[in-house]
Amino acid sequence: MATTQSQSSPSQSSQSQILRYNIIGARRFSNYCFAAIVAIGASGFLLAGISSFLKVNLLPFSEPLQLDFVPQGLALSFYGVAGTLLEIYLLYVMAIDYGGGYNEFDRNSGKITIFRRGRNKNKNLEFTYKVADVQALRVEIRNGLNPKRSLYLRVKGKGDLPLTEVGQPISLTALEDRAAEIAKFLAVPLEGL
């Protein structure tokens, strides 16, 4: 899934005591494109199936009247309904921005907040840790067919907590800049570079 550099831009308060990175969830350009493709395909299958049942051509660019409703029109109708249900699910996930949220580092209160949206308010994930419990910031870079560029926060007793969004890996320069900025802000060592 495609990502852009502007999706996770940091915002700092005027006193530079709070560093916040917004995380894009399901509201990605690639998801909108995929949803449009699914909608077009599902409506085409559904209209072809209905046309074969009603013997009325609802698709001007094809001849679904030549299809028998059983089994061809029925199968097309099934694929159309399945595609429509998938489209409804995709629209719901994008409407709630599933997986979106923020990483906030607050020196005033001495807390780090990692927040991600879930299916509803009861399913949201929010983790709060003390800045004093942070041991290091770790960068993981793996190239190849399945590249991975991730940033992790190492917290005492919690292990490594991911800070980067899911999807296509961010650029190396953006990852390095973000890692350096967070490590400097929290005054912790940076590992993996």
Rank of each mutant, 00 (worst) to 15 (best):
S150L: 10
I141T: 10
F185E: 06
G73N: 09
F105A: 07
R116D: 04
R107N: 12
L76R: 12
L172I: 09
L161I: 15
L91R: 10
L175V: 09
V56R: 11
L67R: 04
L153Y: 01
Y152M: 01
V131T: 13
L161Q: 11
E63L: 04
E176H: 14
V81N: 05
I170V: 14
T173S: 12
G159L: 06
Y152G: 00
G157R: 02
G110W: 01
F115S: 08
Y129C: 02
G83K: 05
Y92I: 13
Y152I: 04
V134I: 11
T164H: 08
E87Y: 13
I88L: 15
T84Y: 09
N57S: 13
D68L: 11
V131Y: 01
L125A: 12
V188A: 06
V139I: 14
L58S: 11
F105T: 04
R138A: 14
A183Y: 10
P60L: 07
P64T: 11
Q72Y: 08
I88C: 14
K111V: 05
L151V: 07
M94R: 08
R117K: 15
V56N: 10
T84Q: 01
A136V: 05
S77K: 04
D177Y: 00
P71R: 00
A82P: 03
A132G: 05
I112M: 05
F53P: 03
G80N: 07
F105S: 07
Y102E: 08
L58N: 12
D106W: 04
V139G: 01
A179F: 05
L54D: 09
K121C: 01
I141G: 00
E181V: 02
L90Q: 11
F61I: 15
S62G: 11
N57Y: 12
L153W: 04
G110Q: 02
K55W: 06
V56Q: 14
R107E: 02
A183H: 10
L59H: 08
R117F: 01
F53K: 12
G110P: 06
L91F: 15
Y79N: 05
G110A: 02
R142D: 06
R178V: 00
